[in-house]
Simulated scan of single mutants.
Amino acid sequence: MITMPPSERDMHAYVDGQLSPIDRQTMEIYLASNPDLAREISDWQLDAQNLRAGVSGALRLPMNPELDPSVIRQRLRGRRHRHLATAAGLVIAIGVGGLGGWQARDVSLASRTLPMADAVQAYRMFATNDTMASDWNTAKPTNVQGWLDKNIAQASRLPNLESVGFKPVSGRLSTTEQGAAAMVVYKDTEGRVLSFYIRPQIDGNRVLQRGSRRDGELQADYWSEGGYNYAMIGPADDPAAKAARLTL
């Protein structure tokens, strides 16, 4: 089982296709909430593809440890770090004005990150997949609120959607760079699915204003409260899902 945050060894195993299906899904949820790391992993994958294409005609030669993808990635990463160190020195030399420019760039990049992208990704991967193992379900002796309170300290109470026909049926824990996260899946008698996702705020000073956004066929309604970000995810155009949103 991989660790969270993932180690460099875990990331190499992901790029090389050596993780188990569950660990791979956990990694993909983590990457969805860490876009900078996701871009770096994507670069690694491209490096690996180019390497395989470049050496495809020499596969019968004796194995050369210097051509191992993980060794090459580590070497490239070391070069990038040296380039970053050089760039950092130049920024210091430029002075406060240059530093302010870099800070503005960071804020601009952060502002382009879609709110609660990991919640939408978790819905697509787990909420509608009845074969996935859950950390809580209706067969457990503890009710869902007790399970959530045990694992996510001081989170808000789960929404009660029984008035619109939805009841909690399963729960799953995951992890983010900021700490534990959880998703509770609701279903109605027609089999329609909603999910309620909780995660720590990425930055204590970056509060999500209550809002919503559409992502393909799904809608995410999100807000912040008490140091956590929350999202209700469900079909954007389904009348039952729309009724559930009105209860939030």
Rank of each mutant, 00 (worst) to 15 (best):
S108I: 00
P69Q: 10
R79S: 09
M116Q: 10
V107W: 10
Y123V: 03
V120A: 12
S108Q: 08
L84H: 13
L46R: 14
D106I: 05
A85V: 03
L76F: 06
R73V: 08
E66F: 05
G101I: 06
G54T: 10
A48H: 15
S108A: 14
S56R: 09
E66M: 14
L114W: 06
V107A: 12
G97I: 04
S111A: 07
Q49L: 11
A110T: 08
V107Y: 13
Q103V: 05
A127S: 10
M116S: 05
G57P: 06
A117D: 02
A119C: 04
D43V: 14
L51M: 11
R60Q: 11
V91R: 01
W44A: 13
R105T: 10
V71Y: 11
R82S: 13
S111G: 00
F126A: 06
T86R: 08
R60T: 15
V91D: 01
F126K: 01
R75H: 13
R79A: 06
A87Q: 01
I72P: 03
A93Y: 11
D68S: 15
R75W: 05
R112E: 14
H83A: 13
D47W: 08
A48W: 13
L76A: 10
A122D: 03
G100P: 00
M116W: 06
A88V: 00
R124V: 01
R80T: 09
E66L: 08
M116G: 01
R105Q: 04
R60C: 04
H81A: 08
A110R: 09
Y123W: 12
V91M: 02
A122I: 03
D118V: 05
A87D: 01
Y123M: 00
S108E: 07
V91S: 04
G54P: 01
M63N: 11
A58G: 14
N64P: 02
T113K: 06
A48D: 13
M63P: 02
R73W: 14
G97Y: 07
N64F: 09
R80H: 14
L61C: 01
I94G: 13
L90G: 09
V55Q: 11
L67H: 13
M116Y: 12
L51I: 09
L61M: 10
D68F: 15
D47L: 06
G100W: 07
Q45C: 02
N50D: 12
H81S: 03
Q49P: 02
L59I: 14
N50R: 09
P115W: 05
T128G: 04
L114R: 14
E66R: 15
P65S: 06
G89V: 03
L90M: 08
W102P: 00
L51A: 13
L76D: 07
G95V: 03
V107Q: 11
L46T: 15
A104T: 05
G78T: 04
R77N: 07
G89E: 04
R105E: 07
G97H: 05
A110D: 08
D106E: 10
S111P: 00
G57E: 08
D106H: 12
A53K: 08
D47H: 11
Q121S: 10
W102V: 15
R60F: 15
A127L: 00
G101H: 03
L46E: 15
A110G: 12
A93V: 04
V107N: 02
M63W: 11
G100N: 07
T113I: 07
R105H: 11
I72Q: 15
A127T: 03
A88L: 04
T113W: 06
A127I: 00
L114S: 09
A119W: 03
T86H: 14
